[in-house]
Simulated scan of single mutants.
Amino acid sequence: MRHDEIWRAIDTLAAERGLSPSALARQAGLDATSFNPSKRRTADGKLRWPSTESIAKILDATGAKLEHFSALVNGARAIPEARAKGRSRLPLIGMAQAGAEGFFDDGGYPAGAGWDEVELPTVADVHAYALSISGESMLPVYRPGDTIIVSPAAPVRQGDRVVVRTQDEAVMAKLLLRRTAGQIELGSLNPDYPDLRFSARAVLWMHRIVWASQ
């Protein structure tokens, strides 16, 4: 059971109920910042784990069973089919815009008024959004102008195609090559572009690509 798996399960539990992590904390009677990404590591980079009391409170507040939460920790489907409330209209911005301030909140969810909308296949994640690809680092799989759907709630594993935001406000679509407690390695599908390595602290969030236009 890893640090990132526990936090992913909390994020997923929130998304299943149409909540941000901050809203889930408030619903459970906790400080609204308890589950913020910035609180998941100390100032010197040490891992900060959620307390058993805070987990017990969010399970009680949501009515979720411990078995369900454990399944989320182990990588179960982000949102069970029976609970899914799909959407066919998703917020959309260009990849080049995504690094600017105001388009995402602290949890990495779409925010602000600058988003357009696009009609796309139904996606269960209530926080899903769409990006328009720019650049050539993901050729030939994703071409400039292609639209991808990104799910913050979907579990991310090695080999997944992901959208990543770094501390220097860069947003990029890459392939997750390797992730450890201290380092994240990302690959470009286009061999003309180099692979990238970041410290785990340098990556604010990483969301899985679940669909792309062809």
Rank of each mutant, 00 (worst) to 15 (best):
P140H: 10
S137D: 06
I133Y: 03
V156P: 00
I148S: 09
V150M: 05
P152Q: 11
I133C: 10
S132N: 12
G145P: 04
D146G: 13
G159I: 04
A154Q: 03
T147V: 15
A154I: 03
A153R: 01
M138W: 05
P155H: 03
G135C: 10
V156D: 00
L139H: 12
I148P: 06
Y142R: 10
V164C: 08
V150R: 01
Y142W: 13
R157A: 02
G145Q: 06
R161K: 13
A153G: 06
G159C: 12
A153I: 02
V162D: 01
P140D: 09
S132G: 12
R143L: 15
V163W: 04
V150P: 01
V156I: 08
R157K: 13
V156T: 04
Q158C: 14
P140C: 10
P155F: 00
V164I: 14
G145K: 06
R157D: 01
L139T: 11
A153Q: 02
I149F: 01
P144C: 10
V163S: 09
P144L: 10
R157S: 02
P144H: 07
D160A: 14
S132Q: 15
Y142V: 06
V141C: 04
P140L: 12
S151I: 02
G135S: 08
V163G: 04
P155R: 02
I148N: 05
R161L: 12
P155G: 03
V150Q: 02
V150I: 13
G159R: 05
A154G: 05
